[in-house]
Amino acid sequence: MLVLDQLAYRHPGQPTGYAFSLEAAPGEITAVSGASGSGKSTLLDLIAGFLAPSSGSLTLDGRDLLPLQPEERPVSILFQADALFEHLSAASNVALGLPRGTDKAEKDAAVTSALAEVGLPEVGRQRGDTLSGGQKQRVALARTLLRKRPVLLLDEPFSALDDATRAAVRDLVLTLTKREGWITLLVSHHVDDIDAVATRQYRIAEGRLLLS
């Protein structure tokens, strides 16, 4: 269980700050909605370790995550754009999810398998910038599969996709979350996305998270 308890942060120069409390369970998608500028991305930055809170706690199954650097946190993150390094092939992008020094044969097998799992077994050699928006997000999910981190943070990941692709990628995220037992936190302002996949829903209002 991922637990945030009064995790507080205030951006420099802003009169009021945030104090986030939230619980998210494995195998479930927990959604957070809110108006633009309400603090959705700040919430993800705090969990991922890009921002340091002034007080409060952040634990995963009782383990304190706050002392950990972003690269040490048990977290994968997926953004609306820039999910891939576009000058690299899809396979090289996926391989970044493996620990450094992984044997080449092992790496090739893992990448092939991960790409197949997200429904893109044929794009391994293609450069990132030749893939469609939906393919890019799927490739990023394949990388997430290899990283084997229990928490997946999604920052508006479906916003740039057309309706049909969006539904397909959304369903893939839900399937993988259930199968892998990920604690998935979805930040979005699209009610359709949230209603389709979220088990638990929060809304940010005046710097606080309210359970809907």
């Binding site: 930055d45 991922a48 040490e72 953004f79």
Partner: peptide
């Protein structure tokens, strides 16, 4: 872009 840096840092490059 900030997104790219965050992705890279999160991946532990």
């Amino acid at each position: 872009p900030d997104f790219r840096l965050k992705t890279g840092q999160s991946l532990g490059l």
